[in-house]
Design a protein around this nucleic acid. Structure first.
Lengths: 157, 157
DNA sequence: TGATCGGAGACTATTATAGTCTCCGACCTT
DNA sequence: AAGGTCGGAGACTATAATAGTCTCCGATCA
């Protein structure tokens, strides 16, 4: 349960790879193309292409066309959060259907629903978690942040 | 993203309702049947029936057959965690496909995958969160627990 | 003994995910 | 300026997960 999609998985792998190349010791600043990543991690090329295009549209990476083209991180790894990456691919975090209900939309359960508020607290905690962790942390860094449980914050009914 | 299923949603609503009836002031100890919950929250009766049967199999509620039958909480609300409820319905928490890989199973990316370990840390944090919160907390209680971000725990590569 | 309850399994429908195919335009190299 | 190499974009199919339905059974209480 609470699984992230393959596409999101691929996005994380790709960004980790790009960051490692770009800020690594071997070939710093080198652009990385889709094919290289697809082969390295056995990801279907065309699917990965779509993922990278989406990341570019969301300004997490910069694209460069033409031969010798490819992708670069648009910012430094510690400025890219896991939440941003996942949301780029999967859309806004929402553990329930009603998390992002527009005004006037209501789920069939809404009028009597007593679990919406506590679930939104859980969602907030997960959001804090994913926002507190950056691509840099996935490379081995160790910042120091503490998350509050929604239980600890108190849940009104 | 990271959505929980409707069935899990229904399970939470149902348990909240059962707990409210059972430990409330109006009719304490009363058994609650499927139809009552389905009507109260506009949940398809037969689908809810399956959900409750699953919860009973997982010993979160007790079932009573026959007329005047229905369900009771098997334990007190503060002894039932959100994690237990969700896992009863959706199976073990796993944010990636490889979270519960059996020996010998490997995803296509595994040999080169650098994100598995940090993602498992994220998963652990979410698990802590869901284990720290109980059905009782969803009723308005306010225990006091703190969760550590995986970033704060350090992520080896 | 029959109406009311849960238990169980097969079944269908719907939607989300995963993956494929094709064509386009940018742009470096020669 | 031409051809190969790259990303951009959209339609398309396949597969799997989810949501929901239908039917029959056995327990049990009045």
């Amino acid at each position: 349960m609470l699984k992230i999609s393959k596409k999101a998985d691929y996005a994380l792998m790709a960004l980790q790879h790009i960051a490692a190349v770009q800020f690594g010791d071997v070939t710093p600043g080198r652009v990385v193309n889709t094919k290289e990543i697809a082969e390295e991690y056995n990801i279907p090329l065309e699917l990965l292409a779509k993922v990278l295009q989406t990341l570019a549209k969301n300004a997490l990476i910069e694209s460069h066309n033409g031969p010798k083209g490819g992708y670069l991180l648009a910012r430094r790894a510690h400025q890219i959060t896991i939440a941003q990456i996942l949301e780029s691919i999967e859309g806004p975090l929402g553990i329930t259907d009603c998390s992002h209900e527009k005004d006037g939309e209501f789920c069939m359960q809404r009028e009597n629903c007593h679990i919406r508020t506590p679930l939104l607290k859980v969602q907030d905690s997960i959001a804090q978690l994913l926002n507190s962790m950056t691509l840099h942390d996935m490379m081995g860094g160790t910042p120091l942040i503490t998350i509050q449980s929604p239980a600890a914050q108190g849940v009104e009914r």
